[in-house]
Computed example of a mutant assay.
Amino acid sequence: MVNRINFINPFGNANYDAIILKTLGHYAASDTNLDVTHLENCPSDIDFFYSKHMIEQSLFEAVLASEEQGYDAVIVGCLYDPGVRVARELVDIPVIGPLEASFQMAANFGHSTMVLTDHRKAVPYIYDQARLNGQGDTVCGVDAIDWFVKDMINDRASVAADVVRLSGEASRRFGSETVIMGCTIIAAIYQEYLMEGGTPSEVPIINPNLMALKMAEGLADLKRKGGYFLARQGFYMKPTGHFKDEFDNARRTWNASKPRFAR
């Protein structure tokens, strides 16, 4: 059986789809059908939190549609892990966040890790996510290479050079053995640089796109074989009965009255 996995770029444009498919498709298992999609009718970039919250509403609809279309798992392709926990309330297929997957997989690569994210605004957010994911004591620190996503895609060589230089500097400063590359697009640019013969960083780089893909493949396999169940009695409880009616009404209202830019 083929696993169908939808890697959703949570951006309202297609600027990042090709590089994700180019750098991630190579690692997909032979029985994985990997699609890379993006959102429609939402802000183009997720660098600021107000845009992030607007993007999440479009993301929820895309996750629901993915399950309806027969996908076996969904990856939300941003290290903010936007909407991941809420999306798990909505669907029964695995919904994977690259940051959460990287935290959970990091111990396989080294005793300690840190996150090298894109811009300064994201640094405290990633610290908060480390605590939320139970990694507050095992993540040595968070730093940034000071790029915004809409700029980095147009200057990939400079981004790759900064990754190589700053990952080594940051790992020494924080005392970490490995570095989680803290943006899915930075990770893709660095992977493209390696594929084109670039010299790797002196410190092992954990690629969150790859961690998310392998977790999605594994959980999709488990679900097909009856080994994956979401606990529905607590945090991920689905609305049922009159709560389901209320949810359906709210969803219809949103889709009928959402702002013009989101239509």
Rank of each mutant, 00 (worst) to 15 (best):
N33W: 12
N33V: 12
N33I: 10
N33L: 13
L34N: 02
L34S: 01
V36P: 03
T37G: 02
H38C: 11
H38W: 09
L39I: 11
L39F: 10
L39N: 07
E40D: 13
E40G: 11
E40R: 13
N41A: 15
N41I: 08
C42Y: 04
C42A: 08
P43T: 06
P43V: 05
S44Y: 15
S44C: 09
S44L: 11
S44F: 14
D45A: 14
D45W: 13
D45P: 00
D45H: 15
I46A: 10
I46H: 02
I46D: 12
F48M: 07
F49L: 01
F49E: 00
Y50P: 02
Y50T: 09
Y50A: 09
S51D: 15
K52M: 11
K52R: 11
K52T: 07
H53L: 01
H53R: 02
M54H: 08
M54K: 11
I55T: 04
E56P: 04
E56H: 00
E56L: 02
S58N: 09
S58A: 14
L59S: 07
L59P: 04
L59Q: 12
L59F: 13
E61R: 08
E61Y: 10
L64F: 12
L64Q: 13
A65Y: 12
A65H: 13
A65N: 12
A65E: 13
A65C: 05
S66L: 06
E67R: 04
E68V: 10
G70I: 11
Y71D: 09
D72W: 08
A73D: 09
V74M: 02
V74P: 00
V74E: 04
I75P: 00
I75H: 04
I75C: 03
I75N: 03
V76D: 06
V76E: 06
V76Q: 01
G77N: 09
G77K: 00
G77H: 03
G77A: 06
C78L: 04
C78Q: 05
C78S: 15
C78P: 02
C78V: 08
C78T: 08
C78A: 15
L79G: 02
L79N: 15
Y80E: 14
Y80D: 15
Y80M: 06
D81V: 03
P82R: 03
P82H: 07
